[in-house]
Design a protein around this nucleic acid. Structure first.
Lengths: 251, 251
DNA sequence: CGCTCTAAGATTGTAGACAATCAGACGAGC
DNA sequence: GCTCGTCTGATTGTCTACAATCTTAGAGCG
């Protein structure tokens, strides 16, 4: 996963205004990561008194951060009953992946047409990381590196809107997999099955890349909806245990 | 514009949980509408003490609502300096419309394949409203009805993600037009130029609809970036004056 | 006149308090 | 044994106060 604190690429030639992240920024990132990693369980209530205490912040900025995630669709706010981590059940998998396919294939076409060598190289680097993660046989690490390849591909489009949507989609995909299964499942041959994505980008083959992305995402849908029919070897791991507590934020 | 309080379509056959909108929901909608309508000027600071007072709410929920809009990209939060309405300058028009094209053309293809008669009829109804708005020769009304046709088309896809993105994109498109121009400009023949969208949806002509959307959005980009080269008759209106104050929310 | 510094007022960010609401447990009645 | 009502504790939602920071205006100096 692109860490949520990913720095802006490149160094500005001139001095830039210094903006340090606000407390709300930090809490938002912490909560988003906790949801992504499974430390905050899908569907679980977010007890703001307890959790703000754990993070070492007061309830005000905690609530503000939570509202950001409500807008992102990662957290659900029910008046009078508080906050909970969203769930994305089986009935929403196809629309989720349809939307994801829209973003990724469109970004890929833009990237093929417009991405510079540096951006293409960052997709290759993300795939190299996936190769290394494959060697660990750790499903969560593989899954994260896998998603990072997809993210880097969308980032290579240079379109801020597509990248913003993809950043949220990646967490939503995690939420979906944690919702529909007690196990976290990835392909055993993740690096190999993702190689066409990088190769076709490098070859500037838009149609080939489009088809490779669709095949990859169709396969993911099948694995999520009908695991027994997926027909590939997989790595499985029990869904991560929720963290007993979140750590205080270093303000 | 689809009003921000648009009810969920259809009636659930079973009893649904009753959820009344929270204060934060209401403030969010109010601010979003104020930005959309120009009552809150692009780039202007959002003075939370003053504005919460105007809306008749306290600063806490006001700040929470603002954070939702920060996540939507409509409001910018700068630590220590507070909130401001976003601007989208000329350099962002092409990426914005590229993203909008992605959403609309993809949603259109899904709608052609999957939309029921009722959804297609709602796009026709939105176009009928555009015909009526055309007769007013009021640029803002025409523009709103125009955007509503596009929104209805994406809604016809039935994909919640695409619709969520489109709902924000519509406000962002407004922000962009208010940023780059002192005037609000729409085509004089808006209804006529949008007719192909409805007709091709009704005819289930995916390629034709895709091409019509692209032509329509390309034209909008040209009108935004190089108004003198647009080559069509337009309606212009001075950008709406910011409202001196927002009205209290009826809680 | 222009620039710098300081002070005052405005605003933001957060903490804590209080009222309203929700959830769960227990007891009474059928 | 089951259902309903009541009570208590937990939690949410909002408000207010205070500290920190920012902005602006005015005064002084070169």
């Amino acid at each position: 996963m692109p860490s949520t604190g990913r720095p802006a690429p490149g160094a500005a030639p001139a001095l830039s205004p210094v903006t340090r992240p606000s407390t709300v920024d930090l809490i938002t990132a912490e909560l988003r990561n906790a949801i992504y990693s499974g430390a905050l369980r899908v569907g679980s209530p977010i007890r703001e008194v307890e959790m703000a205490g754990q993070l070492g912040v007061s309830r005000g900025p905690f609530r503000e951060a939570a509202q950001r995630l409500v807008s992102e669709g990662l957290v659900v706010a029910t008046p009078g009953r508080g906050l909970s981590v969203r769930t994305i059940g089986k009935d929403r998998i196809r629309p989720l992946y349809a939307a994801r396919t829209v973003v990724e294939t469109s970004a890929a076409r833009i990237a093929v047409a417009e991405a510079g060598d540096e951006q293409v190289a960052s997709v290759r680097a993300a795939h190299d990381a996936l190769v290394r993660a494959d060697a660990t046989h750790d499903a969560l690490q593989v899954g994260a590196a896998d998603l990072n390849v997809h993210w880097a591909l969308v980032a290579a489009s240079g379109n801020p809107w597509l990248l913003r949507w993809m950043t949220t989609l990646i967490v939503e995909v995690r939420i979906a997999s944690f919702t529909v299964s007690e196990e976290y499942v990835v392909r055993k041959d993740a690096a190999e099955s993702h190689a066409p994505l990088v190769e076709r980008l490098e070859a500037r083959d838009a149609d080939g890349l489009d088809a490779a992305i669709r095949a990859n995402l169709d396969d993911a849908v099948t694995r999520l909806l009908t695991p027994e029919a997926a027909g590939v070897e997989t790595l499985e791991e029990p869904r991560p245990l929720p963290a007993p507590r979140l750590d205080p934020i270093d303000l």
